[in-house]
């Protein structure tokens, strides 16, 4: 314990600065891909039959596919599409989770039991099966995927929010606020929101990778976005047809980009958790 002083000083940046930089870099990369893909002209990945199956190199960074389309731009565009769907679905999902969690904890009784039953049902079924079912029922396409992902990712957050609110309700300061004449709304706004918000934000960010991954999965399996959309799932599904003939770049680069995006979301979420948690916040 007496040597600790020296080892601490060696780190030029303190933990909080490092964590903040890490979050910023990850967020900038994801936002960059998202915006670039959103405003990309379709000419960037237009068909050039002359260049079909060009391996990765100078002109084609990630190579070209069976129609001679530039894989790099297609990947960026595809990831952007996947991100849009993932983020929107997560947002919808998180709002459902927040509303159900708060309602469940405050209403109690039968309503609480009903919500918990829904949570258990949703978590008991395999995620992917439920997703495919909903997406298929809604006629696939962007709408089907979006609703499918949105309707299957709320249970974890519902549980977290419910537990947080239940715990808050028993605290002395919340009870004291009631005895001092504060209305239910004032107590929720003044006392509960500041505690629930960090839980919600971290939960939301940690939902993103799940949603993006699941969107890509069901699209890959053919139950998601239509084949003409440049989505990561579609690109990966196409690449499977050529992998046997040695066109490795068609699968490797889109897969890598997807994995990197998912990991970065996780990095942001986990580090936000460290910053917002009062126990680890002073490290």
């Amino acid at each position: 314990m007496f040597e600790r002083k020296g080892t601490r000083a060696r780190f030029a940046l303190n933990t909080r600065t490092r964590v903040t930089v890490l979050i910023a870099v990850a967020a900038i990369y994801l936002l960059g891909v998202f915006v670039w893909g959103l405003f990309m002209s379709p000419d960037a990945y237009a068909v050039h039959y002359a260049d079909k199956f060009t391996p990765p190199g100078g002109k084609y960074l990630f190579g070209a596919d069976f129609m001679g389309r530039n894989m790099f731009f297609r990947c960026v565009k595809g990831l952007s599409v996947s991100l849009v769907i993932g983020v929107i679905a997560s947002l919808v999902s998180s709002v459902i989770g927040l509303v159900f969690g708060v309602a469940s904890a405050t209403a109690g009784g039968r309503f609480d039991k009903f919500i918990l039953l829904c949570v258990d049902c949703c978590m008991g079924l395999p995620h992917l099966v439920l997703l495919i079912l909903i997406s298929y029922m809604l006629g696939r396409g962007a709408r089907g995927v979006l609703l499918g992902v949105a309707l299957t990712h709320w249970p974890e957050l519902t549980r977290l929010v419910r537990a947080e609110v239940l715990q808050l309700r028993t605290t002395h300061y919340v009870q004291a606020a009631y005895r001092m004449g504060k209305s239910r709304f004032r107590v929720a706004w003044d006392h509960m929101l500041p505690h629930v918000l960090p839980v919600y934000i971290v939960g939301l960010v940690l939902l993103f990778p799940h949603a993006v991954m699941h969107e890509a999965s069901i699209t890959f399996l053919g139950f998601g976005l239509p084949a003409e959309t440049p989505a990561i799932g579609v690109i990966l599904a196409e690449s499977m047809r050529h992998i046997a003939t040695g066109k490795w770049w068609l699968a490797l680069f889109p897969g890598l980009m997807l994995i990197i995006a998912v990991i970065l979301f996780d990095v942001i979420g986990e580090n936000l958790k460290r910053l917002l948690n009062p126990d680890s916040g002073n490290e």
Partner: peptide, 14 residues
């Protein structure tokens, strides 16, 4: 009104 034994639990830490 009640005043309790643990003031740190009677106030919102945030």
């Amino acid at each position: 009104q009640l005043i309790g034994q643990h003031p740190e639990l009677s106030v919102n830490p945030r």
